[in-house]
């Protein structure tokens, strides 16, 4: 039961980039097309599930003081593995994702889940959490990628969608389009959440906060990290 719960929360309630606002850089950078988004998502699922599993396994023997450093090293090793796998089996994808494959290691979604979940929960729940979050992340990236590809290039997964008269709205595939698109989606998610809770008569939900409280990035809690790190 709890396995399903942990898995399902990543799919909607705590959807990483849109509700928790985790891992913005790849969300913006590799969503020029739906296929790129999907590929990036797959790589993140791989790293996230394994890192969650490993961290959860060794969580009792990691000294508190060097916890963050250990998480980073584990994630980095897995990222190297992903890099090698992609070079061997999906070289075109590896090339189009470019620098953002090695940068998975500093994606706050990995460290954020490790810190917030895997370091406190047993292995099977951590795997469920990683899987749910990873799939949620992939869905979001594919959705954003599809949106930008359809409007920006008139294609979906490389196949032409509109007729020959369609003039692509190039803005969408360039950097500004990425920011504006993500901003509007966040706004829409907030609107949905507010509308939903109003209908159910619940108190107003908190708006999508920056980085889902990933502690690596917030000034207020930096003191704590300093002491731990």
């Amino acid at each position: 039961m709890s396995f399903v719960k942990e898995f399902a929360k990543g799919l909607w309630k705590e959807l990483p980039p849109f509700r928790l606002v985790l891992g913005l850089c790849p969300t913006l950078a590799v969503t020029k097309s739906a296929a790129d988004g999907l590929g990036m998502g797959a790589a993140v699922i791989f790293v996230l599930v394994l890192s969650n599993a490993i961290i959860s396994m060794v969580r009792k023997i990691i000294p508190k003081k060097v916890r963050i450093a250990c998480f980073i090293v584990i994630a980095a090793s897995l990222v190297v593995a992903v890099e090698l796998l992609m070079q061997a089996y999906a070289y075109p994808l590896y090339q189009s994702l470019g620098i953002f494959v090695p940068l998975i290691v500093v994606n706050c979604i990995i460290l954020g889940r490790a810190e917030a979940f895997a370091s406190k929960n047993p292995v099977h729940l951590s795997i469920a959490d990683g899987l749910g979050m990873g799939i949620g992340f992939t869905m979001s990236l594919t959705f954003l990628g599809a949106l930008r590809e359809v409007f920006g290039a008139g294609k979906l997964f490389g196949a032409t969608v509109f007729g020959p008269d369609f003039k692509p709205f190039t803005f969408m595939v360039e950097a500004p389009g990425a920011f504006v698109c993500l901003g509007l989606i966040l706004g829409a998610m907030n609107y949905l959440a507010i509308w939903q809770s109003k209908r159910k008569g619940l108190p107003e939900p908190s708006l999508a906060a920056s980085c889902g409280g990933c502690r690596a990035c917030s000034i207020g809690e930096s003191k704590q990290i300093m002491q731990e790190g």
């Binding site: 901003g183 966040l186 706004g187 829409a188």
Partner: peptide, 18 residues
């Protein structure tokens, strides 16, 4: 209300990027 915070921030980032 629903655009407050990060959301409007990203839209502005888009305009800056433009």
């Amino acid at each position: 209300k629903s655009m407050q915070g990060t959301s409007i921030g990203l839209v502005m980032a888009g305009l800056m990027s433009l």
